[in-house]
Simulated scan of single mutants.
Amino acid sequence: MGLATLYRRHALWLARRLRSRFGEEGEDIAHDAWRKLAAAYASGREIRHPRALLMTVAGRLASDRAARRSRREALESMAAASSPLAETGAQEAAVMMEQLILALPDDLRSVFVMSRFGGLTNAQIGVRLGLSPKTVEWRMTRALAHITAQLRR
């Protein structure tokens, strides 16, 4: 059975299942799960239970996303709690934040701006910049660490 046949048989089921469980993020998870399944299929491995495999892959992807989100939120809350931004006026805070963002290296700044101000996911940023989502995640982590370090000075 070809990958296209598997997709036709199970894509709608997977999308509905993940959307009901994870909301709109379920669509991204479904897309990533199909990418992973395509890689497994390309390696020549036989897929006997595609639904079980899809749900296992999707569950792991969702857990990875939640862990990344948790780490990012922890970094952001640390930065906010120890930040001089918390003690300044809104206008001064905006100017300081702009300076911090402009001080980022170009590759980190582009990812940071697309994520925080463009509202794009790592996958969407990766497509636009020609990077893997993992590289986007790494750059975002570095950008947040750089900003946090500057705020602590």
Rank of each mutant, 00 (worst) to 15 (best):
R65Y: 03
S132D: 14
G44I: 02
R35Q: 12
Q150Y: 13
L108H: 01
A52R: 05
R16P: 11
R152Q: 15
R116V: 01
A39M: 09
K134H: 12
L3N: 05
A58T: 04
H10M: 12
D28M: 11
G23A: 00
S132M: 14
R48N: 05
M55G: 02
A67E: 07
G23P: 06
G26H: 14
A103D: 06
D28I: 09
R142P: 13
R142D: 10
A62G: 04
F112R: 01
R45P: 06
T148I: 06
M96Q: 01
M114Y: 00
S70R: 11
S115Y: 07
R9F: 06
R35A: 03
E87W: 04
A4F: 06
S77Y: 05
H31K: 07
R16D: 08
Q124S: 09
R8H: 13
A30G: 10
Y7L: 12
S70F: 05
R8F: 14
A103S: 11
L85R: 00
I147A: 03
A11K: 10
S110W: 06
Y41C: 12
W34R: 09
V127I: 11
L14M: 08
E98N: 03
M140K: 09
A66I: 09
E25A: 06
Q91S: 04
A52W: 13
R68G: 09
M140F: 13
V95D: 03
V95I: 02
A40K: 15
L108D: 00
M1W: 05
A74E: 14
G59N: 04
M140G: 10
S132T: 13
R48Y: 12
L12Q: 09
V136L: 11
T148N: 15
M96I: 00
A33M: 13
R9K: 13
I147V: 11
I47Q: 09
G2D: 13
A86S: 03
L75H: 00
T121R: 12
T56M: 03
R128A: 09
S82C: 04
L37C: 08
P50Q: 05
G130N: 14
I47S: 10
T148F: 15
L14F: 11
A145F: 15
K36V: 13
T5N: 14
R8Y: 09
H49M: 11
A39V: 08
E87D: 01
W13K: 02
A123W: 15
E92R: 00
A103V: 04
L75Y: 02
G126D: 13
G26W: 10
A149P: 15
P50A: 02
R139T: 12
R71T: 03
